[in-house]
């Protein structure tokens, strides 16, 4: 599965309502859990996995994008949940800048190759200043989704 195949318009939130890092993770995981009808326990397990991974080192880059991620036991296929915040959120970027664009990536435990490929595609897309500017100016989830398919 590629990044484009993993994208789902129903897993995009613009704007995010949370103002802190853990809140953003919980908001994005909650969106995923509702879409996939997960139990509150499963939702908490996923959010905890993401937070534990972020505790090892922030995935925030210096261009306002963060890619929190985790491999999840029992997940049947990869998912990418996108959130865009109107205000910068402190997410641990090395230069102290805030983060506005979040790509939360969840992958099955048993497919490391696919997870690496999806993360790598996001990182490459995020290295384009024009793409990041367009993401930041997106007003709706349709705007964000279309950006990947134009």
């Amino acid at each position: 599965m590629t990044l484009l195949e993993a994208l789902d318009k129903n897993l995009i939130r613009v704007p995010l309502s949370s103002a802190d890092g853990n809140g953003v993770i919980e908001e994005l995981v909650s969106l995923f859990a509702k879409e996939r009808n997960l139990s509150p326990e499963e939702e908490n397990r996923i959010a905890d996995s993401i937070k534990e991974r972020e505790a090892l080192g922030s995935t925030a880059m210096e261009n306002g994008i963060a890619i929190p991620h985790a491999r999840i036991e029992g997940l049947d296929k990869s998912a990418v949940v996108i959130g865009i915040s109107r205000l910068p959120v402190a997410f641990g970027a090395a230069d102290g800048s805030g983060t506005k664009v979040f790509f939360l990536v969840l992958a099955p435990k048993d497919n490391p190759s696919e997870h690496v490929q999806i993360l790598s595609s996001i990182a490459k897309a995020a290295s384009s200043q024009l793409f990041v500017r367009m993401l930041l100016s997106s007003k709706t989830k349709d705007d964000v989704y279309q950006l990947f398919f134009e």
């Binding site: 090892l56 880059m61 190759s113 690496v116 993360l119 790598s120 990182a123 290295s127």
Partner: peptide
């Protein structure tokens, strides 16, 4: 794909420990 693993570390998406784990898992795969 060690190129992608290295790129992910350079862009702070992976920490070194994570890179090592993925590399080991990719070799098993």
């Amino acid at each position: 794909n060690t190129k992608a693993l290295g790129d992910l570390v350079r862009s702070h998406i992976f920490v070194d420990q994570e890179k090592a784990e993925y590399q080991a898992d990719l070799r098993k795969d």
